[in-house]
Amino acid sequence: MEYFTISLLNGTVYGLLLFMVSAGLTLIFGMMGVLNFAHTSFYMLGAYFAYTLQKYISFWPSIILATVLAGGGGIVVERYFLRRVHRYGHAHELLLTFGLSYIIAELIKLFYGNYPTNYRVPESLHFSAFQIFGTDYPVYRLLMGGISLGMFLLVYLLLSRTRVGIVVRSAIYRPRMAEALGHNVPLVFMGVFGVGAALAGLAGAVAGAFYTTNPNMALELGVIVFVVVVVGGLGSLEGAMLASLIIGLSSSFAVGIDLSLVDLFAFFGAGEWAQGLGGLMELKVSSLSATIPFALMLIILLVRPSGLLGEKG
């Protein structure tokens, strides 16, 4: 029971964090058809910006400023890089963002060194929210979950209730039509790109203090976030939320399961036979926790390529 509750809590918070990063990515893809490889670079930039700013100003202002800076970075990337190569097609845009993510990671290594920083949760937030099964549950985890949820609500309301939201949605689903109706689609693109990057930056600024802040964090999270948007359905915000939670929970639960295929076969009385096969059979679920998201993505891509809640085929 303890394992279940803790895993549930941790998995949910991790899932919410994944959502914060993948929200921008999935919106950008839906709108521009660009799979932005550099998206998690903004997550990393957010963390490093916040870490740097904290030396000069207090925690919350530096989080906010880091978010704004990451958003500014996103606008620069869209305006001065992506727009220039738009005419060469999506594959080209994908490759360009790929190159940019490479440069950003190397620049981070140049400025901060190729090792984890000591970015930590500030003392004032370092206390437990409640006791559960005799252990303290850190309040910061709840805070991360809360920020992510709040952001989901905000973005959702913005998209569904406001005029700006309607324009953005129309630009996502029918960019040509929106342009013909006189909306400034390039501006909308730039705006969404900036907001997406800012969200990723916020996630990085907040989560970097709790998990680790290192030059590989963009790449490590990057592949998982791709999984999230593909599983959820490229372009679907709700899908991204659902997929984030599924992946957050499944990785969190898998870590604690020490069963393997051998045990499954043992259940049917063929345990020794399976043990004899070795290899894949003996792999424990816990050691596969990093593998599960990719397996899930493959299954989704083959069975339902538009994703769980994707609208575009």
């Binding site: 799979l35 993505m297 891509l301 390529p305």
Partner: peptide, 16 residues
């Protein structure tokens, strides 16, 4: 699959 989906499958297989 083609296009971006193809790229993502190759990435997923390699990461797997």
């Amino acid at each position: 699959r083609t296009g971006v989906y193809f790229s993502m499958i190759t990435l997923a297989l390699a990461e797997l």
